[in-house]
């Protein structure tokens, strides 16, 4: 019997950006910077007859996590798919630049994005690069940057590259991390290459379980703020430095993956090679059972 809805922890996937931050951080600790009252909207969307949002689809600010000061950003996937427009991206860039200077205990990025906003593509693409460079600066300052991926829009396109720049990543089953989305692959190479309507294929190719097992993420969380909070707390103290040693280790890690799994046809082939028993059943495992499995198998992911 399933519990009544009212007794269940609210879903991270279903929550808004503000609700996620409120539930992730210490109670009432969050202060937003340049919030909706500032009315900093996209100057570009009206050209395309599109509605604007007063926060341009991202919430940035400060708060505490277990009494430690953090800076945090949360993308709102329900506005323009959480896409990186000029203003949206600049809020994250500013937050990261502030972090390099102020050195909080961590920076948390709550991803929920389809990538660059097409209507502002040049500004968005450039900004992805600015954000990645800013993350590197924050990491060089000794501050862990932790990404949390579990939103409706996933972390696609430039969002996937930013995720790959973070020192640590938490992902839920619903979290997807990729560069090209299913529709993009299908549009470019046909339905034989990737059937974007095949949800099971999408989840096992780009979803949280696959990323956690193969080292594309460092921790797996159930679809609740509580689980993401616990994982973030664990990871903050285990973030790798950004230096030659880490990058060489990542080179070796990614070379090993390519060597070992480069000819795999599908995700379960990789999981089997990683020693996962009954790899065909991974998708059906509940969060607790999967977490146990992950603890006993899965690939090394110390270097990022």
């Amino acid at each position: 019997m399933s519990a009544p809805t009212a007794d269940r922890a609210p879903s991270w996937y279903e929550a808004s950006a503000r609700a996620r931050l409120a539930a992730l951080l210490d109670r009432a600790s969050f202060t937003e910077f340049l919030g909706p009252a500032a009315r900093e909207t996209s100057p570009h969307l009206p050209l395309f007859d599109l509605p604007r949002a007063f926060d341009d689809g991202i919430v940035v600010g400060r708060g505490t996590l277990d009494d430690r000061p953090v800076l945090a950003a949360a993308q709102e996937g329900r506005f323009m798919g959480g896409a990186f427009g000029e203003v949206h991206a600049a809020k994250l860039t500013g937050l990261l630049r502030a972090a390099a200077e102020l050195r909080p205990a961590a920076v948390l990025i709550l991803f929920d994005t389809g990538g660059v906003r097409l209507q502002e593509a040049n500004a968005g693409e450039t900004a992805i690069s600015e954000i990645m460079r800013a993350i590197v600066e924050v990491r060089r300052a000794g501050v862990p940057v932790v990404g949390l991926v579990g939103g409706r829009a996933g972390a696609y396109g430039g969002g996937g590259l930013i995720a790959g720049t973070c020192a640590r990543l938490v992902v839920s089953e619903q979290g997807r991390i990729a560069v090209s989305g299913p529709e993009v692959i299908e549009t470019n190479h046909g339905v034989e290459e990737f059937d974007s309507k095949d949800r099971a294929l999408v989840w096992r190719t780009m979803g949280g379980k696959h990323r956690a097992l193969t080292g594309g993420a460092d921790a797996y969380a159930a679809d609740t703020a509580e689980a993401f909070r616990a994982a973030a707390l664990r990871l903050i103290d285990r973030a790798p430095a950004f230096d030659l040693e880490t990058m060489r280790a990542e080179q070796a890690r990614l070379e090993a993956r390519l060597e070992r799994h480069g000819t795999a046809g599908d995700a379960p082939d990789i999981w089997s090679a990683l020693g996962v028993p009954e790899s065909g059943r991974v998708s059906a495992l509940g969060d607790d059972a999967f977490a146990e499995l992950l603890a006993s198998s899965g690939d090394s992911h110390d270097a990022r």
Binding site: A155, G164, V179, S180, T205, I270
Partner: peptide
């Protein structure tokens, strides 16, 4: 590429 984690 996506199966192998192109973003990384």
């Amino acid at each position: 590429d996506e199966l192998l984690g192109l973003n990384e």
